[in-house]
Design a protein around this nucleic acid. Structure first.
Lengths: 208, 208
DNA sequence: CCCATAATCTGAACACTATTCAGATACCGA
DNA sequence: TCGGTATCTGAATAGTGTTCAGATTATGGG
């Protein structure tokens, strides 16, 4: 089953024998197929056909299918970190209010990504890509943004020093878990904003 | 690649033509294969061969491969809920100390399951099983255990009424997220106990 | 400019997969 | 004992990942 939506071929049969930038084209086709059909149900042949190239051509750029998927995962981690950075940049200012908005928006960006592209989120965190260098690197970048955000909250007196210590850990894991539980249909979508309320309250030491 | 460990055949070629309880045998074989090779990389034929039966026999019990996987997911949710119940039952008493131990043990059971069987955890929460009736039912059961646990914490004065309101949401999502992030190698294993410390602190309103 | 060399891609093949279905087999009730 | 039925097999179809010899095209040195 799995409905296996068929995407229209990307472009007419190319004119030149060589493709130009086949690696990038393959990754882009792959991300579209994963988006539509899920990280399982990805077919190498379908990727090749999308690009208009023979299946074996893929093996000049990736040793095997799992490597393509893994590389795709790395790209997604980078894109996600970029979105986080953009979200932070869109809320300047050093007031307590601005710091709180940044905190919430950071979480929302994480969740919005998961919720709008569940299959890509599953690819990232479903054991498909072996995170060894790049993945962890981008994760550390995201971690640092969150740290800075929490520093601001501490500086403006929104959260307590005691809770600051656990800020990254609790925030990150909760947002990650909520994203999973919501896209898998176990928690309702509305649970996310409620979670943000609870997190903020927890961070400020339970005071109103 | 994917190493695709081959498990030894479960039993010698059976004596009787009919199998007895093929459905259960198939699910058991499948869970072992998923455990070893991951939810993707599961082969129907391998499942059938493990049981010593023809590939087509599977289709008398499951309409297709995805249905088998989905059914498997349901079973895992049940087993997980059972483990939670056992964990709770192993710590009786109505003291604050007992209530705190139950809270932590509930989280540890969740994480221990994920960490000891990452591929089964991925199957449960990686979009492989369409959770429609049973899955959500078992999730609600787990939710109720957590609720009771939090009620005890509130009754014994360990946590504040304000935070009690967000207890299930924060605890569940954080434990879920930590499990994912740790088994995917993004957070170190030690992060889990630290998270429990942070959660307890958060629940009690940030007081030491 | 031309040619050799290297990079790139194809075609066909192999072993494997899910899925279907006509038919063989074994059980069970009458 | 017999007929019917649930159960399982065998073979076939279509699609998969992967390999490799060879065809095609780009590139740099004469």
């Amino acid at each position: 089953m799995s409905s296996s939506k068929v995407l229209p071929r990307k472009s007419a049969p190319r004119e030149s024998y060589h493709h130009g930038d086949l690696q990038a084209a393959l990754l882009e086709a792959a991300v579209n197929l994963v988006r539509a059909n899920g990280p399982d149900h990805l077919s190498l042949r379908a990727v090749a056909e999308q690009v208009g190239v023979s299946p074996s051509a893929v093996y000049h750029y990736f040793p095997d299918k799992d490597s393509l998927i893994s590389e795709l995962g790395d790209q997604l981690f980078i894109k996600m970190a970029e979105m986080q950075a953009v979200a932070l940049g869109s809320i300047p200012g050093s007031s307590a209010r601005a710091a709180r908005m940044r905190y919430r928006e950071l979480g929302r960006t994480y969740f919005r990504w998961a919720n709008s592209e569940p299959n890509l989120f599953r690819l990232m965190f479903g054991g498909f890509c072996k995170i060894e260098k790049r993945g962890t690197h981008e994760s550390e970048e995201a971690f640092l943004m969150l740290s800075k955000c929490l520093d601001d909250l501490l500086a403006t007196g929104v959260i307590t020093a005691t809770m600051r210590k656990y800020g990254e850990l609790i925030s990150w894991t909760a947002v990650q878990g909520a994203s999973t539980l919501i896209i898998e249909g176990i928690l309702p979508e509305a649970a996310f904003e409620e979670l943000l309320d609870g997190l903020e309250l927890a961070m400020r030491g339970g005071a109103k």
